[in-house]
Design a protein around this nucleic acid. Structure first.
Length: 416
DNA sequence: AAATGCGCACGTT
DNA sequence: AACGTGCGCATTT
């Protein structure tokens, strides 16, 4: 409960700041929430982190500083040709929110994920970073290495950079969870968050993490870690390095086959400058090891396969089906997926859809308390009319995600 | 002093 | 040209 309350407060605050033309940064958000509702900054910060993980709120680096965006109001640019239509439809459906009027935007500042998954085609390198400077502000420790204001940052390493940069993103954790410094979330700490982006400006791509991981990890513990759930398309982000480390070979494969062909660099996704914390986590070196730890909160076993799930299942299974491939190796991973699907929590489902590019609709899934099991039971009509979401996105969600996940799940069951 | 309002320059589509 | 963003400064509470 409090959770949703905070979601509303924070989202309203971000909207208010935006309408006032003030940067919605951590300090202002915390201050306004405290003033309006009496919540302490630390708590607000923690809740904000949580929302970031769920992608209800997007953390972006805009013009050198961190900003937060109401994901529901962000409209990703119409990415490609045909999407225009779709996007329109999708665009303003504000599910519950409110609504102001401005959502569309494009600033580079955010670009959340794209919605269409399928078209990743082209982009190989998407890097769009908007601002050039990424600076950093306070990032004390975080900034290490290279960054500097050097103008010449290249994108390529972004991935690397990011990693290095921060591990800290979790600025606010109340308890000071992880990183030593743990300033707590005081407003000041907000800086941490920012840190990383400077690295490359480019946002690193989205991580492939699993939805549940995110969800679970109570931000409380480790806050910032990754923020977003497994999203499909963005696999690119993870470069090989990671996978290897990670353990899920499968994931790699996919990437490899699809994009990696050559370089991989990291294309990061589309997002412009999302500032994913998780990025940090990808440290190169430890990447591997690090990444998984996070999910500590999960039930033990899940962790393991959870990961697989994320990447592989989402991506692969889904993609393959979508694309029509038969997916050989896919089958393997599928197993996990089906099982996992049953274990998805409401937060996992919401994270999945947010990551899939439907943040606004993800809210509706959450509102209806759709967890993995419920998702498996959903029928077309449920998705189109039961969630009160716009028809355009609903159709895409059903055809591309719900149906695919269900099919994959049941196919596996049969096999098993 | 803090919260707001908002013109205007910037960077994107 | 149209828009989102947010700085910097004016105004209100």
């Amino acid at each position: 409960m409090s959770e949703s309350k905070y979601r509303e407060w924070i989202l309203d605050t971000i909207d208010s700041l935006r309408s006032r033309k003030a940067r919605p940064d951590l300090e202002r958000i915390c201050r306004m929430v405290r003033r309006r509702h009496g919540s302490e900054p630390d708590r607000t910060c923690a809740e904000l982190e949580k929302l970031i993980q769920e992608q209800t709120v997007l953390k972006v680096n805009y013009k050198g500083s961190i900003s937060y965006r109401n994901a529901a109001k962000v409209q990703r640019r119409s990415r490609k040709k045909d999407d225009a239509t779709l996007s329109m439809a999708a665009r303003r459906s504000a599910v519950e929110e409110a609504s102001h009027s401005d959502l569309s935007n494009g600033d580079s500042a955010f670009g959340p994920v794209d919605q269409d998954e399928e078209d990743l085609e082209a982009d190989t390198s998407v890097a769009m970073d908007t601002d050039s400077n990424a600076d950093e502000e306070g990032a004390d420790e975080s900034r290490d290495g290279q960054d500097g204001p050097s103008p010449g940052r290249t994108y390529e390493d972004a991935s690397v950079h990011c990693a290095s940069v921060r591990a800290v993103s979790a600025p606010c954790s109340p308890s000071g969870t992880r990183p030593g410094p743990g300033p707590g979330c005081s407003l000041g700490s907000g800086l941490d968050c920012a840190t990383f982006q400077k690295a490359g400006e480019r946002p690193s791509s989205l991580p492939p993490s699993s939805p549940r991981a995110l969800a679970h990890n109570d931000w409380a513990d480790c806050p910032a870690e990754r923020q977003h759930p497994g999203m499909q398309r963005e696999k690119a982000a993870m470069k090989p390095a990671i996978h290897s480390a990670t353990s899920s070979p499968t994931a790699l494969k996919k990437n490899v086959k699809k994009e990696d062909g050559g370089k991989v660099e990291d294309r990061s996704l589309s997002s412009d400058q999302l500032v994913p914390d998780y990025a940090a986590r990808l440290d190169e070196t430890k990447t591997v090891s690090d990444r998984r730890p996070q999910p500590m909160s999960l039930p033990s076993e899940n962790c393991t396969f959870k990961k697989k799930l994320d990447i592989s299942s989402f991506t692969e299974a889904e993609d393959s089906l979508l694309n029509g491939c038969k997916g050989d190796e896919v089958s393997v991973k599928k197993e996990n997926m089906s099982q996992n699907l049953l274990q998805w929590t409401v937060a996992d489902v919401a994270s999945y859809f947010s990551a899939a590019g439907f943040p606004e609709q993800a809210v509706a899934f959450r509102a209806q308390e759709i967890d993995g099991k419920s998702l498996l039971l959903m029928q077309r009509s449920d998705v189109l009319t039961g969630l009160s979401i716009r028809l355009g996105p609903a159709l895409k969600i059903y055809e591309r995600h719900v149906k695919v996940l269900q099919r994959t799940h049941f196919l596996e069951c049969e096999d098993l």
